[in-house]
Structures are given as structure tokens and as C-alpha cells.
């Protein structure tokens, strides 16, 4: 019963409220988009706080230690304290940086993840902006992040940063291709790029069962797109200190983290949209709880991988992409096509 959903009820009452004060339905729509935007940004910030703590807890769990546990129960306020510390740090700009490029990079990096949230289908009728090209929009917007890495790398006037920035461009541009190809399999099955339609079509069977290969490729490519282990060459700590982030401190540095966790959530949410049936689940819980639950499971998988694997080398990274992932994803598209053709030929 979607109308029992608390979020939808809040949305409906807000809409009524706006209808009373604003002239015309268009103005109400705009106002509702603003509400959605604020909700998304709030989600990103609270999520980052939760995820940073979760990552440290998961890391502790993997490494037989406790993780943060001093501040509040289970160390829940550790991230809050860290954020306060970062906010109150001196805004230090190293000598010789390209002032504007350097200062803009963290902001630019933060933009794509926020934009991606617009098409995430949190629940039935709970898509901030239900674009009919939602998935295409996700792919297009998330590739903007590459520019931010290059800006940070180039603007920092530091050799480690430049190496990191170059690696970022090479890696993210390459891995976008298998990412898109893996998504294509699902798009072929549904015949739609609209995220809500894709989820709707999974009411019977989740696409992870129909597209297991695409799911694995998506996982790998998404890990590479978000620069997480084993693909964190961009900030490969033991080689190039922190890559493009080397010269940043305080809140600018925190912006990179915020963006990283925002995009981690975004790719996990897209994974649960495309492959794990989105908001579908037993009806004793509202749809958005199922959606968030599946997303957090995906995030845990990414964290699990991060704290288990070593890092690839840059040539191995490229070989993996061009020699394995792209051929396999192409083959997957072909097989999916044959499958759909055969299914239709049988009169399905």
C-alpha cells in the first residue's frame, strides 16, 4: 500500500501546503523539486557520516580490532568530531597552486554524485526526478567526476598529484565503457532507460538472476569508477601519497571524502536498482527501506573488497579492462540479444 508510506504522505502534505500558497501547478512542481534536492543533500551528508563510521567499523571487523569506540556508543560520534576538527582547521593553500582550478576541484567533484541522486528510485513514486532517460543520465553525469580529478591533480602543482590525476583520467574513461555495457544488458531486457520502469519490471524476477555476468562486470567497473580498492590507483597511498588530494587539507579534503562516499552510495543504489529489484521486497516494510537495505548490502560488499584485496598496477588495470571486461561485456550483450530474440520467437 504505497499511500501508507510515510515519505509519500509527507510529500503529499507538502504538495498541498505549496498548492495553498504558490500560484499554479508549475510553481508547486518546482517547489517540490527543491524539497527533493534538499532531501537528497541531507541524505548525502548524513550518509557520509554513517558510511565513514561504517567503513572504519568494517575495517576493524576485518582486521580483528574494534574501530572507533570512544565517542558515544559504538563510537557513533567519532565522525562528527572528525568533521568539527576538519571544519575548524586552517584553510591552507600551498604555494604555487593554480588558485581557481585548485579551489574548484573539490566542489566540482561533489556535483556529479549529487546530480545522480535525482534519478535514484528510492521507492514507488519516490523518484526525485523520474527522467525517462534516467540510466543514461546517470552514466553521463557521473563521468564528469573525471574532470574534477584532473583539476585537482593539475591545479595542485605537485608531481604526485599530476600522476594521480592522469591515472584518474585513464582509469575512469576506460572503465566507463564496461560500466555502460553491463548496464546495457538490463536496458535491453526492460526496453527502458527509466529507473522506475526498470525496477517495476523486476517485480517478478531480479535481474541479477538474468544478468549475473553483467552484475559482476558492473561491480568491478563501479569499484574502478569510484576509485576504490582494488582500483584505488588514483590515490594509491603507498605510491603517490594521496594522488590528487595530496595538497588539500581541512574541509576541502573532507569534500573529497564526502564526494567519494556520495558516489559510493550512488553506484550501490544504481546496482540495487538495476540488478537487485530496487524497492521490491516483502510488504511488511516500506519500499524505500528495502531499497536502502539493498544499497547498504552493496556498500558492504564494496567495503569488504576494499579491506581484502591489494591494489592493481596501472598496466594490469588497463589490461583487465580492455582485454577481459570489455570483450566479456560485449559477449554478454550478444547473448542477451539472442536470448531476447529466442524468447520473442517462442511467442513470449
Amino acid at each position: 500500500m504505497p499511500n501508507d508510506d510515510i515519505l509519500l504522505r509527507i510529500g503529499a502534505s507538502l504538495r498541498e501546503l505549496f498548492a495553498g500558497v504558490l500560484p499554479g501547478p508549475d510553481a508547486v512542481d518546482v517547489a517540490m523539486y527543491f524539497v527533493a534536492l534538499i532531501a537528497c543533500v541531507a541524505l548525502i551528508f548524513t550518509n557520509a557520516v554513517i558510511l565513514i563510521l561504517a567503513e572504519r567499523k568494517v575495517a576493524g571487523f576485518m582486521q580483528s580490532r574494534l574501530g572507533p569506540h570512544r565517542l558515544g556508543p559504538y563510537g557513533m560520534f567519532q565522525t562528527v568530531a572528525d568533521v568539527i576538527k576538519l571544519l575548524t582547521k586552517e584553510d591552507y593553500r600551498p604555494q604555487g597552486v593554480d588558485k581557481w582550478v585548485w579551489a574548484m576541484a573539490p566542489v566540482v567533484l561533489f556535483v556529479p554524485p549529487v546530480m545522480v541522486y535525482a534519478v535514484l528510485p528510492f521507492g514507488k513514486n519516490l523518484v526525485p526526478v523520474d527522467l525517462n532517460i534516467g540510466i543514461f543520465y546517470f552514466v553521463a553525469v557521473s563521468s564528469v567526476a573525471t574532470i574534477a580529478f584532473l583539476m585537482a591533480g593539475w591545479g595542485s602543482n605537485n608531481k604526485y598529484s599530476v600522476i594521480g590525476g592522469m591515472r584518474a583520467v585513464a582509469q575512469m574513461v576506460s572503465y566507463e565503457i564496461p560500466l555502460v555495457f553491463s548496464i546495457l544488458g538490463v536496458v535491453m531486457l526492460t526496453g527502458s532507460l527509466q529507473t522506475s520502469v526498470i525496477v517495476e519490471k523486476q517485480s517478478g524476477i531480479w535481474f541479477i538472476l538474468l544478468q549475473p555476468v553483467a552484475f559482476v562486470i558492473y561491480l568491478i567497473a563501479a569499484a574502478a569508477e569510484t576509485n576504490r580498492m582494488p582500483f584505488d590507483l588514483v590515490e594509491g597511498e603507498s605510491e603517490i601519497i594521496a594522488g590528487p588530494f595530496t595538497e588539500y587539507s581541512g574541509m576541502r579534503w573532507a569534500m573529497f571524502f564526502l564526494a567519494e562516499y556520495a558516489s559510493l552510495f550512488a553506484v550501490s543504489a544504481i546496482a540495487s536498482t538495476l540488478f537487485l529489484g530496487g524497492w521490491h521486497g516483502p510488504s511488511f516494510l516500506p519500499g524505500w527501506v528495502w531499497f536502502l537495505g539493498k544499497t547498504y548490502v552493496m556498500i558492504f560488499v564494496f567495503m569488504w573488497v576494499r579491506w581484502t584485496f591489494p591494489r592493481l598496477r596501472v598496466d594490469q588495470l588497463m589490461a583487465l579492462c580492455w582485454k577481459y571486461l570489455i570483450p566479456v561485456s560485449l559477449a554478454n550483450i550478444l547473448i542477451t540479444g539472442i536470448g531476447i530474440f529466442a524468447y520473442r520467437a517462442m511467442g513470449g
Partner: peptide, 14 residues
């Protein structure tokens, strides 16, 4: 650890 597997480092130290 330098190859990126920090968990391995912690295991050895432990």
C-alpha cells in the same frame, strides 16, 4: 600493505 592490502599488514602485526 604497500601493495594495498592493509588488512594483511594488520594480521602480520597482530
Amino acid at each position: 600493505g604497500e601493495c594495498g592490502a592493509l588488512t594483511g599488514f594488520v594480521f602480520a602485526i597482530r
